[in-house]
Simulated assay, not measured.
Amino acid sequence: MSKATPATRALEHSGVAFTVHTYDYDPDADRIGLQAAEAIGEDPARVLKTLMALVDGKPACVILPSDREVAMKKLAAALGGKSAQMMKPADAERATGYKVGGISPFGQRRKVPVAIEEAALAHDLVFINGGQRGLQLRLDPKDAQRVLGAVAASVVA
């Protein structure tokens, strides 16, 4: 597995400190984020999943703990919209340049609005997908928020 991805390059370019962690990705897992947390031996609240959504029909990204679900109305409100829905997997892959299960908020093809669950900012370090299935990046969530220009909000159901 290559540890150089558009996500790692984007973080290196921004000067953010991070470490790379690999695990055995299970394509048959019911919940990919929870499988990642278990595989690396971390609390699911610290292993954040990256989801792509449409807010008022426009692409957006939301980052939240892997053991939580996104509340679409809260996501829409956080990003100044009226409604939100999950993006179809094929559309998410086209929009980001990453495969589902390996979507990172860093280094996406186009800059889109990003919301991060505010509770995640309470942790010293979190894990966020590194742009490849089985690749997690450990970093300060406040650095992630700053680099992404993410809005911190309560976005979980």
Rank of each mutant, 00 (worst) to 15 (best):
H123P: 00
G41D: 05
A90Y: 12
Q35H: 14
V156L: 08
A71S: 14
E42W: 10
T19V: 04
F127V: 05
L54V: 07
V20T: 14
A115V: 05
A37T: 02
T22C: 08
Q108H: 08
E118C: 01
L139A: 05
A37I: 02
A60G: 10
E69I: 00
S66Y: 00
R9Y: 11
R109H: 13
Q108W: 08
V155L: 09
A150M: 04
D28A: 13
E118M: 00
G130R: 01
L64Y: 02
K88W: 03
S83W: 06
V47M: 05
L121N: 02
D56F: 07
A153N: 05
I116T: 09
A36L: 09
V114R: 11
A37L: 03
P65A: 03
V47Y: 04
K142H: 14
V47N: 03
K88E: 15
L51Q: 08
E93Q: 15
K73D: 15
S14P: 04
P59S: 08
K73F: 02
Y25N: 09
G41N: 01
Q136A: 08
A120I: 01
R31W: 12
P44F: 01
I116A: 10
A119K: 08
P59K: 06
K142F: 03
V100E: 02
P89Y: 01
S154M: 07
P105C: 12
G80I: 09
A76D: 02
G41K: 03
R46C: 04
A29D: 06
L75Q: 05
P113S: 10
L51G: 14
V62H: 04
A53W: 05
D56P: 05
L54R: 04
D143N: 11
K58W: 10
T5C: 08
R146M: 07
K111Q: 15
E12D: 12
V114W: 11
T22K: 14
Q145M: 12
K58T: 14
M1I: 06
L34Q: 13
A7G: 11
K73N: 13
A60E: 07
L148T: 04
L48I: 00
T96H: 09
K74R: 15
E12T: 14
P27A: 01
A77H: 12
A71F: 07
R146H: 11
